[in-house]
Each structure stands twice: as structure tokens, then as C-alpha cells.
Design a protein around this nucleic acid. Structure first.
Lengths: 339, 339
DNA sequence: GTGAAAGCGCTAACAG
DNA sequence: CTGTTAGCGCTTTCAC
């Protein structure tokens, strides 16, 4: 493997000049630069060297930390981040932290330490202690789907999105509205389920609609549990005419359960989801879309900006969500509303 | 940030000894080692340093290259690889190569060069030229879902899996069997669609079943196109009684189309998928499961083995698939078979 | 067992 | 503009 030295020799210059030329720095004669680039290409030397980070104290890579990497939401965000980082010539180091348990999690910063120039943390609800551990790394951190006073953050307005979804149902004349929410005993203390639930409840209250605890069931944001939870709900008396599901996957699960029970959507029960999962489009699911990929990209841009100017304070961005009305919700007839 | 020097000072030894002790090398007094570890922990120094790769010519990280990173199959494989690599203390660098076009793809090896110790390439059908470019990096390469004489490879028997799926249909008395296959003009020249198609055809032939080209439609392995393709198929005369779909996502799309047309599965048409997507379980889809995560893990193990002993030749592994019978296939009655 | 010293491949500071 | 000279933080001889 050719090194900078060989290139320097081949081009008849010093290694320092090669370094400067290849990194596009100023104060290099165009002719010299051309000569060097030619030599580098001839010797198959990377245009943008990374072999030794010792000299500049940078790794040219950013860590992406997430509790899952194969679930829809996370893989989308990662995908967005990857693209933005690659364009900027930064590498993406993947860290799945859910797989780690107990003691290992405590040593997160040991894993990260010195390996990355910055961190993108996706919906990983860390303890305050873990957070401090990350902050103590002294590198820029961007949070996706969370907030913290000392970090940049990219998120959506979960409360607002849930409000829009619920209001949509109310506008269609629904009065008995059910809720498929995240588990109250969620192992991670995501704020997402709480926020979406809060938005839901507030709209109900504002419209003077009665809330019955028997209209709520819980899932863990997967189709499977949602489907089972729906069985539960359907077995109860005074069935809702519409249900807000806190995620598209849970909505899909709910719909599957309805089918199993011989019920139709939206004829028998209207369903609204939340996320904008690709499956939603295909299943004609009415849902609240969030710009998942974009969140990853923006997180990447955010840290790259801070890498450039370490002093600017980290912005906290709230991205918009969109109500996409498809075919799983319908307006109740006046007669039905009277029931 | 504490460096090896500080630790050495704190422990009252030389940097060389610290280096040896922390990496678990021999010829270090146990007492000294303890002292050093204590010092390192006190100063919050990474147990396993990576700051400077210059001295050892290693990066301690492996690249994972894939055409998509958010699709189910790929994210599962990546997930498996991540876990195995992390356990071994190796970092995972993510490279999404589908996003790159034209000239950039040619320079793949420039991106990779010197940044990774090894490569895991997932179902990325490269041109021979691109392959050579990767091989010329001179690092261990493990292929997932592909084969090449000079690389380790982990794959499943796609032909065999498709045969099992098709045979299952035949055993149930189906004679008019349709096929939902990948696009013949696939942008990537995956061997997967070809292999699965081949398996399908061979079973039909062996059982003396007539094959009508009108019974085949194409999708691009997504639900969306599969659903549309199914519309097509259903509009044709002499409808099949069963369909083998080359992927679970396409099977889901097909089933959605059937529902739209008021048809039921398996009463009206039986469906078999391929993959073992989590959705499949939830939708009661009969399918061929492949061990996706495991493939990622094994790819990681394979390269780690070769990193240790560079001379052993790369093995080519074929992992087993399993037919999982659920509720989208049924046995035809004798009367139905006679039709 | 341990330390001193010489690199690893590259960048940065300073001359010229 | 370019070369020289120090490092960067760590590993690896090679003595002791």
C-alpha cells in the first residue's frame, strides 16, 4: 500500500506538500497540485487520507447510537444520516446499544471515546447518568426524537401530531374514540408515547368528549402486540367508532385484528396511525407522516456545522408532521353520531 | 482527555508497559497490570485504545457495504453483523452504495482504502470491475447473499428454498400455480430472483405440471408493485389456485390485492412467500424462512477468523431455510383438483 | 518484566 | 509557494 511518502517521491515534492495538495488547502501551485494528484492516482493513493488520525486528533467519523437498528424508524433515520455524512466525507460508525445490558451500558463512553468526532443519538432514552457520560466525551451531540438542554435536537411535535390525528376523527363526527398507546411500563422511557397520548387526550377534552379508560389498550409499537391488544378492546362493551394508534405498525396490527373479527375499516371502525411507514401508503392507512429520513440528514448537518464552528449553540429543531387522509377513516352519518 | 502518558505516570510505569498491560499481552506482572488498570480507570482512559492506528496499521473497524440499509433484509443482516463485531471490539462502518451513482461508484475503493480492516458486502451485485477494485484492497471480504471464488461467502440455497415452497403447493394438490417474481430487467443483477425462479420451474417440471407464461407477474420485491402486479394477474383468464411469491413483501402485496378484489386467502388462492419477514408471522403467511441475522453474524465471524489467520482459505457457507406452514395455503379438495 | 528509543503515516508550525 | 522539523498517541523492537 502506497503511503504519502511514495507519492511525494513520485511527484518530486515533500510529504507536507502532498498532504496540503490532496486536502485542497491553499498555497499550493496548481501545477504542483496536478502533478501530485497524478502521482497519487498512479500509485492508487486515497485522495482523502485517513490512515493516521493521531496527528490531527480527529477520526473523521461520527457515531450513530440507537436502541434498534433494524426497526423501520431507526433504519430510516440512519439512512438519512448516512447519506448526509458520506457526502461530507465522514464515516458512520454504528452502535446498537439495546443489545448491551447492565454493566456494559455504563461503559458506553469507553466504546465511544476517541473513536468518533461527534455523536448522533436516536431515540435512545438514556438515564441522566448515561447522558452525562456521553456529554463528558466533549464532542458535539445531536439528538433525534429527544431533547436535552445541552445538545442539538431534531424532533417532531408529537403532541401536535397526535392532536391533528385526533381532531381529524372528531371532525368526522366520531365521539367514541379509542386509543392504542405504548405500554405504560415501557422498558425505555420514551417520551413519544406520553406525548402522543397527551395530544390525544387534550383534543378529547377540548371537544367535551367523554373519555373511558376501557377504550384504551396498549401495544409495544409492533404489529403483533397491537393485534392482540385489539382483540381485547373488541371484546369490551360499547365499542369505539374510531381508534387513534400511536404508530402505523400498531395501526396495521389493529386492522389485521379487525379483519379477523370480520370487521371492516373504515365501515365499522375508523383507524388513524402515526409515522408515515411505507406500509401505510400501501394499506391506505390514514396517518400522520413524519419526515424520518430528513431527521437523520438534519442531525448530520447539525453536528457537521458544530464541528466547523464549535462555539455556536446547538439549535433545537421541531420538524412538521402532515396529516395524510386515506381510506381508513370516514365521516359518521348523522344517524350514527346520534347513537 | 487523558492519554497513555498520563496513565503511565499515574501508575509509575512506562507507556510501553501500559500499552502491553491494557491489551492483555504477556510479560506483564500481575501486580503491575492491576496498578495500571486502576490508573486507567481512575483517569477514565479507554481500556482498549484506538486513538492512533498509525503504529499498528489497523483501524479496528470493518466496513459493511449494502445497496440499501433501511430495507428489512439488509437491516437484519447489518444488525447481526453489528452484534458479532461489537462483541469482538470491532467497529462497524456503514456504506450505502446504492445512493452513489456513476463516477463515484468507480471510486469506491478510494472511500474504503485504509479505513477498514475488512469488508462485509451484502447482496450488492457488483460488476467484475468493481469486484476487482474491492479485492485489490487486499483485505478480507465476506459476501452475504452472493458468491465469488476469491471471497468468503454466506448464503442460503435459494433454488432449494423455492423448490420446497413450490413442492408444498404441489403436495396440496395445486396444479395451476402462479409466480410472482423479480423484474427481469432488475437494475441490480441479483442472482436471487433467478435462483428462486429456477427452483420454482424445476419443481413444476418434475411434477409434470404445465407452465403458462400468463401465470407469471413481476414485482420489485416491494409490497406496492406486487399489489399492482397482482391486479394484472387477476384480470387474466384461467386464474391460478396458488401463487409462489419470491419474497414476503411481495406476498403481502399480493394478499392485499386479493382482499381488494374480494378474494380470500387461502380459500380462493393460496400464497407462499419467501424470507421470514416479521410481518409474515403476523399475517399468518406460509413462507420459507432464512436466518437473516445469523448470516450477518457469520459473515462477521468469518472475517474475524481471517483477520486472525490470514492464510486460511475463505469458506463458502450455505445456510438452511425452513418451510413454515401457516394459514395462507390449503389443500385443494379432490373436486377442485379435477377442475 | 520493564523501559528507552525508534518508528507508524501523517499534519502543523515555522522558515525561507 | 514549498521544504524542514517537530510532533500526534501509540506500538514495537531491543536492550537491561
Amino acid at each position: 500500500m502506497a503511503g504519502i511518502k511514495e507519492v511525494a517521491e513520485e511527484a518530486g515534492v515533500s510529504t507536507a506538500t502532498v498532504s496540503r495538495a490532496l486536502r485542497g488547502l491553499q498555497h499550493v501551485n496548481d501545477a504542483t497540485r496536478s502533478k501530485i494528484i497524478a502521482a497519487a492516482e498512479k500509485l492508487d493513493y486515497p485522495l482523502t487520507p485517513v490512515r493516521s488520525n493521531a496527528a490531527q486528533g480527529r477520526t473523521n467519523s461520527v457515531g450513530v447510537v440507537a436502541p434498534y437498528i433494524s426497526r423501520w424508524y431507526f433504519s430510516q433515520v440512519i439512512n438519512g444520516a448516512e447519506q448526509a455524512l458520506r457526502e461530507a466525507g465522514l464515516d458512520l460508525l454504528l452502535y446498537n446499544f439495546s443489545a448491551m445490558k447492565g454493566r456494559e451500558r455504563l461503559f458506553q463512553h469507553q466504546l465511544l471515546k476517541g473513536r468518533v468526532d461527534a455523536l448522533i443519538v436516536i431515540s435512545l432514552p438514556p438515564t441522566e447518568e448515561e447522558f452525562n457520560s456521553m456529554l463528558s466525551l466533549g464532542i458535539p451531540i445531536a439528538l433525534v426524537g429527544m431533547e436535552h438542554p445541552e445538545c442539538a435536537s431534531i424532533k417532531i411535535d408529537d403532541v401536535g401530531g397526535a392532536r391533528t390525528a385526533t381532531q381529524h376523527l372528531v371532525n368526522q363526527g366520531h365521539k367514541k374514540i379509542g386509543l392504542m398507546s405504548g405500554r405504560p411500563d415501557d422498558p425505555f422511557n420514551f417520551s413519544v408515547p406520553q406525548d402522543r397520548r397527551k395530544g390525544f387526550m387534550s383534543v378529547l377534552a377540548e371537544n367535551g368528549l367523554e373519555w373511558l379508560p376501557s377504550r384504551e389498550v396498549h401495544g409495544d409499537f409492533t404489529m403483533h402486540t397491537a393485534s392482540r391488544a385489539m382483540d381485547d378492546l373488541l371484546a369490551r362493551p360499547d365499542r369505539p367508532t374510531a381508534i387513534f394508534c400511536e404508530s402505523d405498525e400498531m395501526a396495521m396490527g389493529a386492522m389485521q385484528a379487525l379483519r379477523r373479527h370480520g370487521l371492516k375499516t373504515p365501515e365499522d371502525i375508523s383507524i388513524v396511525g402515526f409515522d408515515g411507514h411505507e406500509m401505510a401508503e400501501f394499506s391506505e392507512l390514514t396517518t400522520i407522516e413524519q419526515p424520518v429520513q430528513l431527521m437523520g440528514e438534519m442531525a448530520a448537518w447539525s453536528i457537521m456545522e458544530r464541528l466547523r464552528k464549535p462555539n455556536v449553540i446547538a439549535p433545537s429543531l421541531v420538524l412538521p408532521t402532515t396529516l395524510v387522509v386515506r381510506n381508513t377513516t370516514r365521516r359518521l352519518t348523522v344517524a350514527e353520531q346520534g347513537l
